[in-house]
Design a protein around this nucleic acid. Sequence first.
DNA 1: GCTTGTTAGTTACAAAATCAACTATTACTC
DNA 2: GAGTAATAGTTGATTTTGTAACTAACAAGC
Lengths: 150, 150
Amino acid sequence: MTQDKSAKKDDFDLQEFLPYLLNRAAEESSLEFQQVYKDRYGMLRTEWRVLFHLGNYGEMTAKEIGERAKIHKTKVSRAVSKLEQRRYLARNRDTSDRRVEQLTLTSAGQTVYRDLRLVAEAYDSKLAGLFSRDEAELLRKMLRRLAHMN
Amino acid sequence: MTQDKSAKKDDFDLQEFLPYLLNRAAEESSLEFQQVYKDRYGMLRTEWRVLFHLGNYGEMTAKEIGERAKIHKTKVSRAVSKLEQRRYLARNRDTSDRRVEQLTLTSAGQTVYRDLRLVAEAYDSKLAGLFSRDEAELLRKMLRRLAHMN
DNA sequence: GCTTGTTAGTTACAAAATCAACTATTACTC
DNA sequence: GAGTAATAGTTGATTTTGTAACTAACAAGC
């Protein structure tokens, strides 16, 4: 039963398992950006995602955000409330269907969005810079495929 | 303010942002495997990871597992307790340093591990099958780089 | 060998995620 | 148009995670 930690029994290596690798890479690569939106604005992951969706695509409903980002509606609902409390977004009842709320960023929200977007752009460049241009492009393509975002 | 949902303002597209893409791909690609360890064995993510570390590398301490998998010690501690309750692993006080516990899978734990490992192997092949052999290899390499697992 | 610091692991409390049930509104069917 | 089903979004209860403080054992310095 001699066992050194780099050897693998039987032909399976956890460290090669794609879901594991993807999770590790995702967690690691989220850390640095998380520090920023957390420390600078006290935001949670779902909150910046909602903020970015509105900043990026303009007016959307909670449902649309949830579908596009694959976030459960209760999480979206709570993130929207938080962002509204902080006056980063405003809700507008849809007149043609009063169950629906159209969400938009306030100008305060847009300011935050623009600030974080700069950070995101710089960070993305840094990460992509680990690879050649072609490799980075291929990586994104493969990730989209895995995420069913084609 | 015309806005269609595929257009991007100002040159930044959330859907191209690597941390976002990585998270989406990681979540999506974890789902199917999660169903199995959850439904079949009522296990949590940290629990299968601990189980796999022990199955894959043999005897380890909680600390070693935490370091290798980048899991916080409280999470490891709780996962170990759960796995012990279910008789999937056994603890052995290290005689030379009585703070330390050497962890090993019981034979029940090994059985579970072997079962899940088969599922993992098949699933990994399925995911890798979305790409050419070279692409899949490159993907793993890039993910390791991003996760600082070099 | 006694104080001080460090380490492995656990526990308690707060924050967040998950799941189910709920309200309000609209759509469908007869 | 009354009754039933479906939909957008919220709320509450439970589970899981994260943070900090804790215990027990060892290490180092004197």
